[in-house]
């Protein structure tokens, strides 16, 4: 550290110096270093956040310009059965995506981590969904599930299964949209989980085996705790991805049928931009609800799950 330091007129003060002047100088220097970061934070996060709070209390004209102060009217508009349904859809959507998007790649990552020939090819293939954008994935899956000429339905028919109405049946539409999202996130999650598995010390596993822990027992008691940081990371990022997914419902169902795939982010988009809408006030209020939901989920995840995470 000292060798990299540029020549200075004042004598170098060790970090443990108790003289006040050095402390202040050091703090100022520290502040200088984080300043670019703080500016970015201010411009891209704090300012828009304040703006969102401001907009949520304003009415807007047909161009979306804020007009008059309406107080908490937009928040009052959120206490409707419709918005309750939107929250419910968001919850179900997130649940399916997080549970499926973690369990599926996990069940793939375990066999993939075995040292067998050709596993690399499979790992690359399984990771590919990661490369899709939400809209591309939506369009591709729409074709796969086209009600008249779907390859998926054709395959199901060969197996003797009557395919459901993927996007028009109320019960199925949300499952379809979250299934596609699950498929999308599983590529990246597989990558992270496989890396976590690869990082496990062979000696630890051997020691466990000698102690008699094999199979499921070894996985639950040894492997799982050892990859818990990766697992936790995957759960947190997937939750956020799920909460913010717009492209899938927008492209695949446009929130339908009858609003059954309308999630929180879709609703924000719908109020602010869709169909020549420019109700930025209500959209901002819903955006703040999204922020709240995100923070609440984070509290739960950090408060409950992270306690069990084993950092080495």
């Amino acid at each position: 550290m000292t060798s990299a330091k540029p020549p200075d007129k004042a004598p170098v003060t060790p970090p443990s110096a108790t003289r006040g002047g050095g402390r202040v100088r050091e703090n100022l220097l520290g502040l200088l270093f984080v300043l670019p970061g703080l500016v970015g934070l201010g411009v891209f996060v704090i300012f828009p956040l304040v703006q969102a709070v401001y907009l949520s209390m304003m009415g807007s004209d047909i161009l979306g310009n804020p007009t008059r102060f309406v107080g908490f009217q937009h928040f009052a508009e959120l206490f409707t059965p419709e918005f309750g349904n939107i929250l419910l859809h968001t919850l179900i959507f997130t649940l399916i995506v997080v549970v499926g998007g973690v369990v599926l790649p996990m069940s793939l990552a375990v066999p993939l981590s075995q040292k067998l020939p050709g596993m690399r090819v499979f790992r690359t293939l399984f990771t590919l969904p990661f490369a899709y954008s939400a809209s591309a994935a939506g369009v591709v899956w729409l074709l796969m599930l086209d009600p008249s000429m779907s390859p998926v339905n054709w395959l199901l028919r060969l197996l003797g299964v009557v395919a459901p109405h993927w996007t028009t049946d109320s019960g199925w539409a949300l499952v379809t949209v979250s299934g596609v999202t699950m498929w999308m996130v599983s590529g990246f999650n597989l990558l992270v989980l496989a890396a976590g598995l690869a990082g496990i010390d062979e000696e630890v596993l051997e020691a466990a085996r000698i102690d008699g822990a094999t199979g499921i027992r070894q996985f639950v008691s040894v492997v799982l705790p050892m990859i818990s940081p990766s697992l936790f990371f995957v759960i947190v990022t997937t939750t956020l991805t799920a909460l913010q997914s717009l492209g899938q419902p927008q492209v695949m169902t446009d929130g339908g049928p009858n609003g059954d795939t309308s999630t929180l982010v879709y609703s924000i988009y719908n109020q602010a931009f869709h169909n020549n809408n420019s109700n930025y006030g209500l959209a901002s209020a819903q955006g703040l609800v999204l922020l709240l939901v995100g923070v609440l989920l984070a509290v739960v995840q950090f408060g409950v799950i992270e306690r069990r995470v084993h950092y080495r």
């Binding site: 828009p48 602010a272 901002s284 955006g287 999204l290 922020l291 995100g294 923070v295």
Partner: peptide, 9 residues
Amino acid sequence: AATAVTACS
């Protein structure tokens, strides 16, 4: 979470 709000504002 905050950037999600940013988009509309």
